[in-house]
Structure formats: C-alpha cells, structure tokens
Design a protein around this nucleic acid. Structure first.
Length: 871
DNA sequence: TGAGTCACG
DNA sequence: ACGTACGTGACTCAG
C-alpha cells in the first residue's frame, strides 16, 4: 500500500473560500469566512483521503507574479481585499495549533512549492493529492499525483479530481502538453504573453497535433490557420519565454522533512481555543463528539410495555418542560402524518437522564400515543416540539400558550438561514453533534432531548435579543393561526379551472403556429436560448441586453422592439398564456384535494424580513394585474351559504415610514387622508397640488416605492425611464421635502453598520452582514436591505398581529367563518352569509387596530361570490 | 441543479 | 470603478 500525502495550496484555497462563503465575523469583528471555508475543505479532504502526511504551502511574500488571488478580477491586478488579508495570519496560527506542517519559502511561488514537493514525494513511492483552486497545477498531474479542485457552490463543496488521464480527457492534452497549450494561448492574469492571435481552441489543436511548441515550430509552415503559422514564426521567442513562465518548477531547492508533515491529532487544546475565539461552533463539535454523544445517548431508553409507557406519560405530565418528537418507523408503511393509524413512534424527554422512545405496537396504537401526548401538552408548563405546525393535526392541544417550537425560535434568532433543523439547534445551543449516520429510534430520542434541553438557552437568547414578546405573542400564536388556515384550505372549482386551461391551450396552439410561420421554422419558444438564436441571429433583431449565457429575452427587453417586429408581440402573448396555463390552470388543478379544496402551506421561517411565504401551491402570487390572468380568481369560491370577504391594508408600508420617521408632513397628510402620491409629486416637483399630471403622479409613486425599497438613483432611473441624474435630483428634492425620512433611513444604515442588524417596530431582527463587505455591490445591497427591512418587517409584524386577532375573534365567537389566505397586506375570509356584517366588523377592527401608529391604519374591504369579485 | 423568466406584495 | 431597486415561489430548459 502506497503512503499518501495531501498538499494544500494555502492561498489559493483560502481565496476560494473567501469568495465562496458569505461574510462571517466573530465577536471582535474579525472576518472569518475564508478561514471557516478553508477548514471545512481541509476536513472534507482529510476524511476522503485519510493521508499519512499533510502539508500546506503559502507564498511567503505578497504575490507578485502569477497567482490565483489576482485572477478573480478579470485578469487585472488589485490588492488583496482587507477582509481576506487579515485572515491569512490567523489561518496559519490555527494550522500550527493543529500541528499541520506549513511550508513557505521566500522567492518561490506556491505552484513551485507544490510542484517540487509532489515530485519528490512521488519519487519516494507515495501517492499525492494536490488541493488547489488554480488550474495551472493540472500540469503536475500524473498517475500518482491527483489534482483536486474544490468548488464552493451554495455552501456545499464539490471537488473536481484530475489524474493524468482525466486531464487528457477534459482538455485533450496530457499534463505536460498543457504547459505548451498555455505557452501558445497565454494568460493575462499570470503575465504570460503567449502568441498573439492564438486562443484556447487553436492552441489545443496545435498541441494535439504536434505535442509541443518546439515540434510545432519545426513544422511551422504547415500550421493552420495561416495566422497561427505566421504569428508563431514571428513571436517564437515570446512563445519560448511563455513556456518557461508557464512551467511549474519541480526541482526547487526546498528544505522539507517528511516526518514533520506526519498527519497526527488535529484536535488539540490550542486549536479548540482558536475555534472558540473564531466562533466556529459547528467545527468545535468535532473536538468532543465522542464525549457528548455518549453522555446523552446512554440515557436513551425504548419502552414497548404498555404499563411502563403509562408510567412514563404520567411522569412526563408532571414535569415542567417536556420535549417531544414524532417519527415514522418504517417508510414502507402508511405515512404517519397523513393518517393516525400509521406506524411510528413518539419520543419524550423531560430531564437530562429521562429520554424515552415509545414505538406503537399492539398494546400501544398510535391513536393512544397521540392522545397521551395531547394530555401532556395540556398539563405541562412547556411543551416543546420542533415544527409543531406539522404535527398539530395529530394532537388535541388546548393550551396553546404553553407550546414552544425551537425551530421558530431559531428562525427569529437568525432569519437568514436556508433551513432549520433540530440538529442545528442541538449543535448551536447544546454543543451537541448528532451524527448524520444516526437514524431511527436514536434520532428520535435526540430530537426529543434537544427539544427538551434547548428551551432554556433559546429562551435566554430570545430575551437577550429583545425578541421574547415577538416569540410569545406573535410567532407562536401565529403558528396556530397558520395551521387553521392550512386545515381550512380554499375551495376551487375544478371544472371551471379545466375549461379555463383548455381555452388557454387552444389560444397557445394558434400562437405557436403564427410564431413558427413568422420565424420560418419550428423551435421551442420556451427556451430562452433557442428563442435568442431565432430572434437575434436568424431574424437579425437589434440585440440589446445580454445575460451571462446569451441574449436577454425578458419581457422588458423585448417590449422595446415590439413596434417594429410583430413576432415579439406574439412571443410575449405566448409567454403570458403559457405561464397562466402551466403555473395556474394546470398547476393549481394538481393541488385540488378530495374535498374540492386546495390546502396550500404557509411558511413562517422562510423570509429574511418576517413575511410569511406560501407554497404547494403559492397562493400569494395568483394573477391580478392583467385582466386575463385575473380571471383565474373566479375559480376560487366559497362554500355554499358563504361569501368571500377580502380586506387589504392601504399603503401600509408608507404609513409605517411616516410613523417611524416621524415626518410631520407625511403624518399630517395621512391623518387628513390626502392623496399621498399626488402630494409627493406636488412637493417634490414644485407644482400646485391640483396641477399634478398623471405622469407626475406616477413618477412620484415610483419615488415613494423606491424609498421603501432602499432608494438608489440607478434603480429609480431604470424604473421610470429617466436619466440617473434626474433620478438623483428627484431623490434629493424628496429628502429636502421630507427631512425626517432621510434621517430615518440614514439611521437604519448606521444602526446596521454598528450593530450588524436592523429591527422592526416590534423588535424583530434582520442581520445585514453584507454591510461589512469590501465589495461595492454587496455593500450597497446591504444599505438597501437596512432601509427596507424595518419597513417591510414592521408591515409583516402588524399583519401577523391582525391575523392572530381575526382568527381568535372568529373562534372565540364560535363563528363558522374562517380565515383562508394571507397575501402580505391582504386577508381573505370565507364568511358565512349570516356573519357578513360581524366578519367585516372584526376585520376592520383587528386590522386597523393591530398597531397604534402616529397615522391611522386604513383598509379597503370588499365581498363577493368569488375571489375575483371580492378583490 | 442553476439560470432565466414571470406571477404576486 | 463598481453596475441594483425590497421580499417571495413555480415552471421550463439544458447541462
């Protein structure tokens, strides 16, 4: 068995990690994302390779020649970002603490260090894995030297592996020939001139045919195209120089002691201290996995006996805090959550050493288990379950105020995560790592234990961050309201929907034909790529905007061409109809249940701002702006003897802005129920109120929107088709008119910069890590987020309060009417005809009364026999 | 699986 | 110089 060494290109991997991982900082404000990403790649590679030896190379001086670090910017050289620079010494210290050998030698680039070390190790009969983000290292690949190029995509790391044969397969040339290819084509980032007029394709072809630049030069008159032949002759000296520059040194004079590179225990006390200081909580867990797991797991206990189960349930009922987990035992059997007779288990934890799991069985049917758990829910002080809404249909919970969902708490503490799992809560709150191998009853016990043990730290963190009330009085009660809405569902007329879809289908067929005729051939209109080729290459339309992959065929880009090219109109119409058909007509039909209703899901832990989101299907983006799409709403109907009542807040975000900024003019205007956009136009453009034209009002409205979105002259100018300069003047004039708003927005950005987050009126937090970035674009984004989040988030808070109160009022009065759908500033209530007035009164009272602001909250309300009419 | 497009607030 | 309005989800294509 050959021994193995892993060689890591330190700067290159650090650089990859820096740009691949979102900004992170520790408590002292030290940026840590590159270090974090580096360590993750290191651990991943070590797990895969299990090498005997490990070495990391660094350039000792600031790199001046070819280096990965400088290539990120389109080949131009810029100094290293400060956020990255400060992490370089730290990663070296961390690696030293982990007893990892570091090699750096003045005057030698990382490539040459890697080349020399890998050659030396290979000659000593070892396997070598070179980890680098730099494709230049591919020339080092052999049968025993593997080049591994990690790519961080969306937080996940994938690695491309190249042995010599893989290089050949991918690039058609051997690793050695790779050098010659580069010598011909050059590399601006590395200051390798190459041969003018020879690009990647020609270079590859020449080397495939001749094997080296020397041999190509010997046959220089045969080379094709003629330009390559001529230029190689003319620039032969430059080509030779390029080859020298492109060749990585493999025989450098380096002091290297293999014994020092022996890979031993990484998890030292010193490393632990560093990880703690850097706040790498989930990496910390690596240090004591054994200990923690064993500690908790030894108390896990499975109960199959009815009598013993009874006893456990009784003891749990007397506890203060109980953590519960439900799980399916066997995926081949009935889904537990769809049917109470499914085959599963319930786990309970009510003490550090009291963790039990009870599978259903002959003496212990699921119905019985659910009944006993419901009893506990109503007895104990804290009933803790992760994703409570998902299991609520199985339980009979009467004392909602004693429930605790750690997933919701975790979301409030950091709303930016993509998903929330109990394993993350265990790691972050309890420093407990649940191994991904754990399944079945153990996993269930871990979940119950975490539900139990995480209550205290989560509550403490909610308290510290000022979000206790947000959790207890808004998010937890809302969970039940959303559950009620999902249970209720909305009735949809399947037949009407089908007819609507068929009509669309017929029109689509006609349009298709017309488009093919005009284009002169058949193609897939839904493929932006094919469409781009047809429009801009075949038909020769002027192509304006481009995307990363080709021409932009977005509606905005095409519309500008519409008058001259009738096909564009047809395509836009086709797009509109096929969207309506696929997403709405056919799409919605798939979700109609046996009860004739669509039970969509409402999610509480998705958005960064606190809004709710809707899926399966998305009921928050049903068409309304265009009449044809709007007609879809006619298939959303109430039950017999019911009508729809729909109420929406009028300009809630601008009212919040008026309140939060304390701007007297705006507040006064809302108190007097004036036309806000007209007033804005009048004041910003210095026109008498009554002389404001429609266009001016529209533009003023866009400015108001822009303010809410975090204004920028660029965005505004693009939106209302004016120059950037004019947009900047609008904004300036706006801020002169409403100085309070300017101050409010400035303060939001200031707070975000100082604290790292902004808050809503009710204390909800949104972190804004982008503000610390050195990247202009990211930082600007952070500024807009800081301005927008408090407004959008406060609107979300107010709506949530209203929803809870409406839902509770309907239930408290034992009414038949029920809340069905929320669309951010709008509520839809299926209202029994005898309760119409009462429901309207409740909606008005609870929505307008959800918050006491300096301006009134106003709603528009309508009723009708379908959603189209009620809106 | 990501990019492009488009539906909503 | 940089090159975007804020927040979502579904569908389609193409690699």
């Amino acid at each position: 068995m050959r021994e193995k060494i892993v060689l890591i290109d330190g700067h290159s991997i650090l650089n990859r990690a820096f740009y691949g991982i979102p900004d992170l900082t520790n408590a002292e404000g030290l940026h840590t994302n590159a270090i974090y990403g580096f360590l993750n790649i290191l651990f991943k590679i070590l797990e895969e390779e299990k090498p005997e030896y490990l070495t990391v190379t660094f350039d000792v001086h600031a790199p001046t020649f070819r280096h990965e670090m400088y290539k990120e910017y389109k080949g131009t050289r810029k100094p290293m970002a400060e956020e990255l620079r400060q992490q370089v010494p730290v990663i070296k210290e961390v690696l030293q603490a982990m007893n990892v050998e570091i090699i750096e030698q003045a005057g030698l680039e990382a490539d040459d260090l890697l080349g020399t070390l890998s050659r030396r190790c290979e000659e000593n009969g070892m396997d070598v894995a070179i980890i680098s983000g730099d494709r230049d290292t591919l020339q080092l690949a052999t049968e025993h030297v593997k080049i591994r190029i990690p790519k961080t995509k969306q937080g996940k790391t994938e690695v491309e592996d190249y042995l010599a044969a893989d290089v050949k397969e991918r690039y058609q040339v051997t690793p050695t020939e790779f050098i010659d290819v580069k010598a011909l084509m050059g590399d601006t980032a590395d200051n390798i001139p190459g041969v003018p007029g020879i690009g990647e394709k020609t270079a590859t072809k020449i080397i495939v045919d001749y094997g080296s630049i020397e041999n190509a030069y010997a046959h220089v008159d045969e080379l094709k195209p003629p330009r390559a032949s001529k230029n190689l002759k003319e620039f032969w000296e430059q080509a030779k120089l390029s080859k020298t520059l492109a060749t990585i040194e493999v025989n450098a004079d380096i002091a290297f002691d293999l014994e020092g590179a022996k890979h031993g225990n990484l998890y030292t006390k010193e490393a632990y201290d560093y990880f703690q200081e850097l706040q790498f909580k989930n990496l910390l867990a690596r240090f004591d996995v054994e200990a923690t797991v064993n500690d908790v797991e030894q108390y896990f206990c499975e109960i199959v006996d009815r009598k013993k189960a009874e006893e456990i349930f009784e003891r749990a009922g007397r506890a203060d805090v109980v953590g519960i987990a439900f799980s399916e035992d066997n995926e081949n059997l009935l889904p537990l959550f769809a049917h109470t007779s499914g085959y599963g288990r319930v786990s309970l934890a009510f003490g550090e050493q009291e963790v039990y799991t009870i599978p259903c069985g002959d003496d212990l049917p699921m119905e019985y288990l659910f009944e006993r758990v419901s009893g506990i829910a109503n007895d104990v002080e804290t009933f803790s379950v992760f994703n409570l809404k998902e299991v609520l249909s199985l339980l009979d919970v009467r004392s909602e105020e004693y429930c605790f969902d750690g997933i919701i708490a975790a979301y409030l503490l950091n709303p930016l995560k993509n998903d929330y799992q109990f394993e993350d809560v265990a790691r972050e709150q309890l420093n407990l790592t649940v191994d991904s191998q754990v399944t079945g009853k153990e996993l269930s016990c871990y979940e119950a234990y975490t539900a139990f043990a995480a209550v205290k730290p989560l509550r403490a963190h909610l308290e510290e961050t000022g979000m206790k009330k947000m959790f207890d009085e808004i998010e937890m009660p809302l969970l039940f309201t959303l559950f009620h809405m999902e249970q209720a569902g909305v009735r949809v007329e399947a037949d009407e929907l089908r007819v609507y879809g068929e009509e669309l289908g017929a029109q689509i067929v006609v349009l298709e034909k017309e488009i093919y005729e005009m284009a002169g051939e058949m193609f897939n209109i839904n493929s932006p790529k094919q469409l781009g080729v047809i429009l801009f290459e075949k038909m020769g339309l002027p192509n304006g905007k481009k995307t990363k992959t080709g021409y932009s065929t977005a509606a905005g880009a095409l519309e500008k061409l519409a008058p001259e090219y009738p096909i564009v109109d047809k395509i836009l119409e086709y797009r509109q109809l096929s969207k309506l058909k696929s997403t709405y007509a056919d799409g919605l039909a798939n979700f109609i249940g046996l009860d004739g209703r669509i039970h969509g899901k409402f999610h509480q832990t998705i958005t960064a701002t606190g809004r709710i989101s809707s899926t399966e299907p998305n009921l928050q983006n049903i068409p309304i702006r265009m009449e044809l799409g709007r007609l879809i709403r006619k298939v959303f109907i109430p039950d017999e003897d019911y009508v729809f009542v729909d109420a929406d807040y009028s300009q809630i975000e601008l009212r919040i802005l008026a309140h939060c900024s304390g701007d007297e003019q705006l507040i006064q205007a809302y108190r007097e129920a004036r036309d806000i956009h007209r007033m804005t136009a009048s004041q910003v453009f210095h026109i008498p109120f009554d002389e404001v034209t429609d266009l001016e009002r529209r533009n003023a409205k866009a400015v108001n929107f822009g303010i809410v979105y975090g204004i920028s002259s660029f965005g505004l100018s693009r939106n209302i088709s004016i120059t950037r300069k004019e947009a900047a003047q609008y904004i300036e004039s706006y801020f002169e008119t409403y100085p309070g708003i300017k101050k409010f927005l400035d303060d939001a950005v200031k707070q975000a910069k100082e604290e790292g987050y902004v808050t809503t009126l009710f204390g909800r937090r949104r972190p804004v890590p982008e503000l610390a970035s050195s990247n202009f674009m990211q930082r600007s984004f952070g500024e807009r987020v800081a301005m927008n989040a408090p407004i959008q988030g406060t609107a979300a808070d107010i709506m949530k309060i209203a929803m809870i109160r409406v839902d509770q009022a309907l239930r408290a009065n034992h009414m038949k009417s029920r809340l069905l759908i929320q669309v951010h500033d709008e509520l839809l209530v299926e209202t029994h005809k005898d309760e119409l007035q009462a429901v309207e009164a409740i909606l008005k009272r609870e929505m307008e009364g959800a918050a006491e602001l300096a301006v009134p909250l106003d709603i528009d309300m309508h009723h009708g026999s379908n959603w189209y009419e009620a809106k």
